[in-house]
């Protein structure tokens, strides 16, 4: 159990580290490009080294410490090669471990927010919230998202007030000035209320399986959005289940889920809800929208990050100095 969790953790961190690396690489490459351009423009008087400075440098390197420098250099090269080789080996070993991982791997979909500069499709976030509210919220909590966070992202403040009040008609608050707890309707400052008071209640209502919190689920599963989309759309009809697979009462066959037998009933069907913007509510549309919404829940700062990338590149470009 611990190992599985640890592996998932590493997997998740690896995607995050790699995506950050690619951005870092881009920035570094950009920086070197600017440096090269500036070097080429070296005729500009201001950027030229004065001769005295160059000869000073030459003196510094030929003052008899030559051999030591060479030994040091070969040492660094060896260490570099060893570390590089070891990490390549580790990476290769880690990759081959996947051979006995037998769930179906999801295809890579082209999400409206997957490009380096792409923002979320906010109309889709809005529809996805309706899907969560009307379908998933019966079983899944969304503990880290307060209602107010959706204001000016997918809803106006007035709309959100209404939604919060009808999401939970009664919520315990207090104490008031008499020291008593009282009931009130939900407010925009509340976090989205969970469907079950605790895990035991959740398990008891779902054949012993606990529906996980969805706030960070997109980052918490290998394959991220692609996995959630494929899993939600990947249920197999009772007739098509491979021979020899035992499906107990209340379980379902889903080749994308680790172990292939999942306790969640297929949640989405064509027209299970109606959209207020007139988009046809087919199953794949519902799924795409709820996954976009859950992706936003996992990383509401994504757009700011992408905006900062542009700022960073402009800043590096304007201050490029060799």
């Amino acid at each position: 159990m611990f190992l599985v969790n640890f592996k998932q953790f590493v997997e998740q961190k690896r995607t995050i580290i790699f995506s950050n690396f690619s951005v870092l690489f881009l920035c570094t490459a950009d920086f070197f490009l600017i440096m090269a351009v500036v070097r080429k423009l070296g005729n500009i008087k201001l950027l030229k080294c004065r001769p005295s400075f160059i000869s000073l440098q030459v003196c510094h390197f030929s003052n008899g410490a030559g051999t030591r420098w060479n030994i040091k250099k070969s040492m660094y090269t060896t260490i570099g090669l060893a570390v590089g080789g070891a990490s390549a080996l580790l990476y290769a070993l880690e990759q081959s471990v996947k051979a006995y991982d037998w769930p179906l791997h999801p295809p890579a979909y082209n999400w409206s927010h997957s490009g380096v500069l792409d923002a979320y499709d906010h109309a889709s976030i809005r529809r996805g919230f309706y899907v969560y509210k009307n379908v998933c919220s019966a079983c899944h909590s969304l503990d880290f998202i307060p209602f107010r966070r959706l204001i000016d992202v997918a809803f106006t403040e007035d709309e959100m007030r209404e939604i919060a009040a009808e999401f939970q008609v009664c919520i315990q608050d207090g104490p008031n000035e008499d020291g008593e707890m009282f009931m009130r309707p939900g407010k925009v400052s509340d976090y989205i209320p969970p469907p079950y008071p605790n895990e035991e209640a959740a398990a008891a209502a779902n054949n012993g399986a606990v529906p996980p919190d969805l706030s960070l689920i997109v980052l918490g599963r290998e394959g991220n959005e692609d996995y959630i989309f494929s899993m939600l759309n990947g249920y197999t009809d009772a007739d098509d289940i491979p021979a020899g697979v035992e499906i107990s009462e209340g379980a379902h066959y889903n080749p994308y889920f680790t172990g292939s037998v999942i306790a969640m009933a297929p949640p989405l069907y064509n027209n299970v809800i109606e959209y207020d913007d007139g988009t046809p509510a087919t199953r794949s549309q519902l799924t795409k929208d709820v996954v976009t919404f859950l992706s936003w829940c996992s990383q509401p700062e994504m757009e700011k990050r992408k905006l900062w990338l542009i700022k960073f590149l402009i800043l590096i470009d304007t201050s490029g100095h060799p």
Binding site: S112, L117, A119, H122, K306, I310, K311
Partner: peptide, 28 residues
Amino acid sequence: AIDNISEAIFFKYNKGKLWDDIKHNYVK
């Protein structure tokens, strides 16, 4: 200047997807 330039680039690149572009449908 950098803020304005990068925001202009970002908003132009993502035109039609952002909240500011769809807000008018919902504001009473």
